[in-house]
């Protein structure tokens, strides 16, 4: 996340659940294409209207398409969704292909996803079956019966043997060898 996104609304991806109401239908309910009949910046949008708009409307009977010519104003597309959200796309100097692509995006999404920083690219209501971690999750059961403070638990996990301990070990081995020798000699 960059600094320019600090004040952006954040959220998770969502589906239009709504208890089954409004599922399995196109979420784009109404689209308004606003353009100017003269101005060059609307040219792409005008081309789109001439060549492709009728097909678009036929392919998407669930979407209401409005055209709104207005003099000397910028071309825009306004999409309105089933969940009440509106999305505004400025089509200044767009070619007809670009307009087509944007319209396709508006048609396929479920709401206004503009200006939302997705915290994660996935979302689930049940992130873990095991349940969130607690301090007791992987705790050794034996610890429940211990009286604190406990000397044994307090000792460090690994200590290198000291010089004295090493000497003692050598001494013990010597004694063992001597004993074995004595036994062998007796036999």
């Amino acid at each position: 996340m960059s600094n320019s996104h600090l004040f952006m609304k954040s959220g998770f991806i969502k589906t239009p659940g709504q208890n089954g109401v409004g599922r399995y239908i196109c979420q784009l309910q109404r689209v308004v294409l606003k353009f100017c009949k003269n101005n060059g910046s609307s040219r792409g949008l005008r081309d789109f209207i001439e060549k492709e708009l009728v097909d678009f409307a036929k392919d998407n009977p669930g979407t209401v398409v409005y055209l709104k010519p207005r003099r000397h104003r910028a071309p825009v597309i306004i999409a309105e969704y089933l969940n009440g959200e509106r999305q505004y796309v400025n089509c200044h100097n767009y070619t007809s292909e670009e307009v087509s692509k944007w319209l396709n995006l508006l048609r396929t999404q479920a709401g206004n996803n503009d200006n939302i920083r997705l915290r994660k690219l996935w979302h689930t209501d049940h992130p873990s079956i095991q349940g969130p971690w607690t301090p007791y999750t992987f705790r050794e059961p034996a610890l429940n019966l211990v009286d604190f403070p406990n000397e044994e638990l307090s000792k460090p996990l690994y200590v290198e043997p000291s010089a004295t301990e090493k000497l003692l070990e050598i001494f013990k081995e010597q004694q063992r060898n001597l004993n074995i020798l004595e036994k062998n000699q007796r036999e």
Partner: peptide, 21 residues
């Protein structure tokens, strides 16, 4: 020293290991 109030001692549930013997 080792004199800890008993109410504190009751809630203790873990011992941190010492660094040295």
């Amino acid at each position: 020293d080792a004199n800890v109030p008993s109410d504190m001692l009751k809630s203790i549930s873990n011992q941190i290991k010492q660094l040295r013997l």
